[in-house]
């Protein structure tokens, strides 16, 4: 494998890992291991990786040639742990088998086309999460039903908001306002006893789970820059949820 091919493949794997929600230390680790499998592990041939949640920089040095570098800016980050798992298996396969670049590219194309859950499944899962957490935090059956329906609405709202590519803060404020105002209105009509359990249940759908766990795991691995970034992102989402719910409650209980 030439230095150029190695650079293309590692930068693609790295950016895919970051986009699908892998921890940052895993990204750097995978790239270093892949490079070592092809003999780029020290001496004249070596690779340097720098990854943060928003960009990826890889430099490959081969012999006395001028080093080559690629930078990737990562803008859209989602969560797809199934693809992270498959990329992980792929990099383990690369390290043991050392296949040609074309084979790896074919595998990467396959991974990026793997199925995600469709709309109906997502709707069902949001409804189940909302209603079971309403029960979990001590609500009754009416609370659970209301939370399930509002969760579906929250999913629709977040899909709509996503189209304008908002910041995480804005998105969580909008979703939270929508959820809380409907919950308060339903309880004012008299369909549920109170709105607190409903709001808690629905809000569990918006908890930034992957951001929090990645934050903890990056801190443990000693990658403090990435850890700080994800920590601030998680805090912003949480504050956004609180601001949204607080303003909706203050508004609709005052009327």
């Amino acid at each position: 494998m030439t230095a150029k091919e190695l650079l293309q493949i590692t930068s693609r794997i790295g950016s895919m890992l970051i986009e699908y929600g892998a921890e940052i230390y895993r990204v750097e680790d995978s790239i270093n291991r892949i490079a070592a499998a092809y003999g780029f592990s020290g001496g004249n041939n070596h690779i340097e990786v720098f990854a943060i949640p928003t960009s990826l920089i890889i430099t490959v040095n081969e012999g006395d040639d001028a080093p080559i570098t690629q930078t990737r800016r990562i803008i859209n980050r989602g969560t797809n742990l199934d693809r992270v798992d498959k990329l992980n298996n792929l990099s383990r396969f690369i390290c043991t088998e050392k296949p040609e670049a074309d084979v790896i590219k074919k595998h990467l194309d396959e991974i990026s086309k793997r199925k995600v859950y469709g709309y109906p499944v997502q709707i069902i899962s949001y409804a189940i999460v909302g209603s079971t957490f309403a029960l979990f935090f001590g609500g009754g059956i009416p609370d659970a039903v209301a939370a399930g329906i509002i969760s579906i609405l929250v999913l629709l709202v977040s899909k709509m908001v996503n189209k304008v590519k908002p910041s995480v803060f804005f998105q969580s404020v909008v979703c939270s306002i929508a959820a809380s105002s409907i919950a308060v209105i339903i309880s004012r009509i008299g369909l549920t006893d109170g709105f607190d359990k409903v709001i808690i249940g629905v809000s569990m759908n918006l908890v930034p789970g992957i951001t929090l766990t990645n934050c903890m795991r990056d801190f443990i691995a000693g990658d403090f820059l990435a850890g700080m970034y994800t920590l601030i992102e998680a805090l912003l989402v949480a504050v956004g949820m609180a601001v949204g719910a607080a303003s909706a409650i203050a508004l609709f209980t005052a009327i």
Binding site: T79, L81, Q122, G209, I210
Partner: peptide
């Protein structure tokens, strides 16, 4: 038993958001 049951159902359903098989 009930809280454990709720958390079983909720955490399985939560897996969909992360696209876990």
């Amino acid at each position: 038993i009930l809280p454990c049951l709720y958390s079983l159902i909720a955490s399985i359903a939560f897996g969909v958001q992360f696209n876990i098989k």
